[in-house]
Amino acid sequence: MATADDFKLIRDIHSTGGRRQVFGSREQKPFEDLVDLGWLKRSSVDSRATHYQITERGTSAAL
């Protein structure tokens, strides 16, 4: 179930172009929650960072 923080984060991601790069596993937790909701997808993972991209469902949630 989505929380107020989830909606705040997806709106922030949407307003800044729909993509986010995250460093460190602790910082990934809120983004992984949005992946579980179907609002974000992991577009790539490298040794230092994970890249996320907003989905259509995420765009709808952000509006």
Rank of each mutant, 00 (worst) to 15 (best):
M1W: 12
M1A: 12
T3K: 08
T3E: 04
T3P: 03
T3R: 07
A4I: 12
A4W: 11
A4K: 10
D5L: 11
D5S: 12
D5F: 09
F7V: 07
F7E: 04
F7R: 05
F7K: 04
F7C: 06
L9S: 02
L9T: 03
L9R: 04
L9K: 03
I10H: 00
I10E: 01
I10L: 05
I10S: 00
R11E: 05
D12V: 07
D12T: 07
I13R: 00
I13W: 01
I13L: 05
H14G: 03
S15L: 13
S15E: 13
R19M: 12
R19S: 14
R19K: 13
R20W: 07
Q21Y: 11
Q21F: 07
G24N: 13
S25N: 12
R26F: 14
E27Q: 12
Q28C: 08
K29V: 06
K29D: 05
P30A: 09
E32W: 05
E32G: 05
E32F: 04
D33K: 15
V35S: 02
D36G: 12
D36I: 14
D36V: 14
L37R: 07
L37G: 01
L37P: 00
G38A: 04
L40G: 00
L40T: 02
L40E: 01
K41I: 15
K41P: 01
S43Q: 13
S43W: 12
V45T: 10
V45D: 08
S47Q: 12
S47G: 15
S47R: 07
S47W: 09
R48A: 14
R48W: 12
R48H: 14
A49P: 05
A49N: 08
A49M: 12
T50Y: 09
T50F: 09
T50G: 05
Y52G: 01
Q53F: 09
I54D: 01
T55E: 02
T55V: 02
T55A: 02
E56C: 07
R57P: 07
G58L: 00
G58K: 00
T59R: 11
A61E: 04
A61S: 04
A62I: 04
A62C: 05
A62N: 02
L63H: 08
L63I: 10
